[in-house]
């Protein structure tokens, strides 16, 4: 049942490292949430983080675009390099970093604005469009990439909050894509969706792989197996195993990984 697509391994071998994390430690107050994690995330690849609840996979994901900065008690140590540059360097503006490293959240969170304004939000604040026509082009392109254009093209001025859950999540993906990011982080993007919407979003993730490096946190091992080429297994704040998805699901090296994917721990 964990039939990872076989054609992917060749692709992975050809790509470069996009994000490289070394010795990352995260503390929430006194709690040591992430312990010494090393990870190399490849470009134009879907990387899945799996693991039981509270293992730190979402926390680590939020380190990659410095979203943890918005939490007062959170401290991050270690190096995270994006294209060889330390994103925790003083000179890096987290705001600009987040434009490069987009994020999609667990619960769809469209802004209380029209569908058009939801997509145009990022391009507007970053000044990506020279004029209205330009912006229209960006909005259409993003909605097409989010695989939702056909469903909303006739009602771009309708509120984004009026869409169904699955449409909202694809709208949020399109919104993240609109700022032309290089990396897309997805924090359990399908956990609030029904199976059909999940299938649509998964299909979309596979398409996004052509242009972006995608990192997805998921609770569903089937999902990890379906959409990802690389999989990292987190347990109690440690990165237990990180390898090709097919390897993790068929021939894991660590006994803990095997226990988890066969359902004995979790």
């Amino acid at each position: 049942m964990y039939d990872a697509p076989h054609y992917t391994e060749r692709d992975v071998a050809q790509t470069d490292t996009k994000i490289s994390a070394k010795g990352v430690q995260v503390y929430y107050g006194d709690t040591h949430a992430i312990k010494d994690v090393d990870v190399e995330i490849a470009d134009k690849t879907v990387t899945a983080f799996i693991g039981p609840s509270g293992c730190g996979k979402s926390t680590f994901l939020r380190c990659l675009n410095r979203m943890n900065d918005t939490i007062d008690i959170c401290r991050v140590q270690g190096d995270i390099l994006l294209d060889g540059e330390d994103i925790y360097d003083r000179r890096v503006d987290p705001v600009q970093l987040r434009a490069k490293v987009g994020m999609v959240f667990q619960k769809p969170n469209p802004f209380p604005k029209s569908i058009y304004d939801n997509i145009a939000y990022g391009p507007r604040i970053h000044g990506l469009a020279k004029n209205k026509a330009d912006l229209d082009v960006i909005v259409e392109k993003s909605l097409r990439r989010g695989a939702i254009w056909d469903e909303v093209k006739d009602r771009l001025q309708a509120p984004g909050t009026g869409l169904s859950g699955g449409q909202q999540q694809r709208l949020c993906i399109a919104r993240a894509v609109a700022t032309e990011p290089e990396v897309l982080l997805m924090d359990e993007p399908c956990s609030a969706l029904d199976p059909i919407a999940t299938a649509q979003v998964e299909e979309l993730i596979d398409e996004l792989r052509r242009d972006y490096s995608v990192v997805i946190v998921t609770h569903s091992m089937q999902q990890a197996a379906r959409v990802s080429q690389k999989t990292a297994f987190f347990h109690l704040g440690n990165l237990v195993e990180y390898d090709d998805t097919s390897k993790i699901f068929t021939n894991p090296e660590d006994p803990r990984t095997e226990s988890y994917i066969t359902g004995r721990i979790g």
Partner: peptide, 10 residues
Amino acid sequence: MRDGSYGLGA
């Protein structure tokens, strides 16, 4: 809402 906006680089 805020996370969504920060996540877009606002």
